[in-house]
Design a protein around this nucleic acid. Structure first.
Lengths: 130, 130
DNA sequence: GCTTGACATGGAGTAAACTCCAAGTGATAT
DNA sequence: ATATCACTTGGAGTTTACTCCATGTCAAGC
């Protein structure tokens, strides 16, 4: 079984050691094994959790929600339904955000096009602001 | 020319009056007209800016960037190029974010599918966590 | 004339998510 | 055996984007 130090995990996932300790402290990583000196020895499961957390965080999912999810996971089978509902709810939130960002990207593209036209002299004004 | 109070703008764009005053204070709304008692009378241009700011913020664009953009806008034609570059850079950031959220949505959908299979009895384990 | 209500201001407070720091431990290299 | 290094902890500090509050002004209604 592979065990790696916090320095290695930090490098692997591009998260600071402080962030990893913080994540563990608040309950985002179910079980981080330690050696007999109290030093963390992340195993594969911890790493998978970290990767999962990182992915969810990169999309902006709130830490509170992730704490909830992991806490439900730790409680076992009886929380399957609740976990599923949580995931669905969060997915819907992300879809909403996704749409919003898509709209904003479109708007920016249009705006940039106008700037290009001004640069090419096809437009004389810049009164389309905002 | 239509002029509306902060209360009306607040309602129209679903932003608190505090937020609107804050936005003006930090330089996000180029020019908000006032009556002779110092009370804000938002005109159409202010409203367009507010709507623009709201759209950008909803996608997570940072306030600092928006302050920069508006400050460039106020300086006039000589900043056209710089504004265009700023918009392109921000658009690219949003595209990155968009992709990340898309990936996370896919991942959540797969996870939800697994939960469904467990619920239907097609899977007995839930060890696919995380 | 007085109250009410909507507005104004400056500045303090808050929430989320880290980030930094001081002080301490234990294994390893010189 | 002493220094160095990578780790540990608890707790304080930081950043971003608001949000709240105390105090004050003015116009309108009773």
């Amino acid at each position: 079984m592979i065990k790696i130090t916090i320095a290695e995990v930090s490098k692997k996932y591009n998260l600071t050691q402080d962030t990893l300790r913080y994540y563990e402290k608040i309950g985002l990583i179910p079980h981080v094994p330690r050696n007999n000196n109290g030093i963390r020895n992340f195993d594969e499961e911890s790493c998978r959790w970290i990767e999962f957390i990182k992915c969810m965080r990169s999309a902006g999912m709130q830490i509170e929600v992730l704490i909830k999810y992991i806490s439900l996971f730790k409680q076992g089978r009886e929380t399957l339904e609740e976990r599923r509902n949580l995931l669905i709810e969060q997915k819907e939130k992300l879809v909403e955000k996704y749409t919003e960002i898509g709209n904003t990207i479109n708007r920016l593209e249009n705006k940039i096009k106008i700037y290009d036209e001004i640069a090419e002299g096809k437009r004389k004004d810049f009164m389309e602001e905002p």
